[in-house]
């Protein structure tokens, strides 16, 4: 465990090395949040929108901004690049488990983004003084935190799996781009998925992406009945096990194909 803690610390220091770039990166996120805030502000001027009050929609926007920072990461992008250029070979010589090595490397990036996003949302609330919901129900908060932990693992598994495409093809960035946009929308990063028709909503809920943001935020906003909650948690756990199994299988197959380019 100590070695992974060292990986975390090194990655943390690396992220802080490029402070100007980090600032610009977070400013992007702030602009995205501002856009969505004003869209919902316009739509709720006359009252509720698609069953959401103004306070619920604003809470959704702020919550999505914070959760994106801790759940979504970009470190795993480098895995594909490292497999393609041969740098990946060095990990095979290290006394580490590559899966957990990358997990802790990305965790440092996520933690830094998380702290920054809380700061950004705080500033936004201070400036705009919007209505929002501060959940106090203990059971909702417990389920909410549990869903975040599951989402964190689910995202990492999906992201890691997509990067492993590089074992088979040098063209791994295109599939990654496709994956990221599919994930952004299907996870509910821009809007609650329930604004869509019932058919589209249930189609999206049967995919793993909806459990990354929409599901935790729906729990926080108490938009789920207990029976739905149990069903969706069960479905999320099934997805995690299935994707973990596929990732393990693809990893072992991919490793046999790895040619160690550049050695």
């Amino acid at each position: 465990m100590k070695k992974y803690w060292t990986v975390f610390k090194m990655s943390w220091a690396r992220e802080l090395e490029y402070r100007f770039n980090f600032f610009l990166w977070r400013l992007r996120s702030f602009i995205g949040m501002t856009l969505l805030y004003f869209v919902w502000f316009s739509l709720t001027l006359k009252g509720k929108f698609a069953g959401f009050t103004e306070a619920e929609l604003f809470t959704y926007v702020f919550g999505a901004n914070i959760l994106r920072s801790i759940i979504f990461g970009s470190q795993t992008r480098n895995i594909a690049e490292e497999i393609n250029n041969g740098w990946f070979s060095r990990y095979l010589l290290m006394p580490i488990n590559h899966f957990w090595f990358e997990f802790f490397r990305e965790l440092a990036q996520r933690t830094l983004n998380f702290i920054s996003s809380i700061f950004e949302v705080g500033i936004f609330i201070l400036i705009a003084k919007p209505n929002f919901i501060l959940e106090k129900n203990f059971s909702s908060l417990t389920f909410f935190f549990f869903s975040i932990i599951l989402a964190l693992f689910l995202y990492y598994l999906l992201s890691y799996l997509v990067s492993l495409v590089a074992f088979w093809s040098r063209e791994a960035m295109g599939p990654r781009f496709l994956f990221e946009w599919l994930l952004e929308f299907s996870s509910g990063a821009y809007f609650p998925l329930s604004v869509f028709s019932e058919f589209l909503f249930f189609t999206l809920m049967s995919l793993p992406f909806a459990y990354l943001l929409y599901f935790p935020l729906s729990i926080y906003l108490e938009k789920m009945h207990n029976s739905e909650l149990i069903n969706f948690f069960a479905l999320e756990l099934i997805w995690i096990f299935v994707i973990a199994f596929i990732t393990k299988y693809i990893w072992s197959k991919g490793l046999k194909r790895f040619t160690g380019e550049g050695i």
Binding site: L43, K46, F49, A50, S169, R170, E171, M173, G174, P175, R176, F177, L178, E180, W181, L182, E184, F185, Y190, F191, V195, F196, S197, L200
Partner: peptide, 30 residues
């Protein structure tokens, strides 16, 4: 780079399609 070509093109259409669907969803409620 055919895989990248198809993936990027398809990704752009997905991004466009989802936002388009979002606007249609807005006008389904307003």
């Amino acid at each position: 780079n055919r895989i990248d070509f198809v993936s990027y093109l398809f990704g752009k259409f997905i991004r466009f399609g989802f936002f388009f669907a979002f606007i249609l969803a807005i006008f389904a409620h307003s």
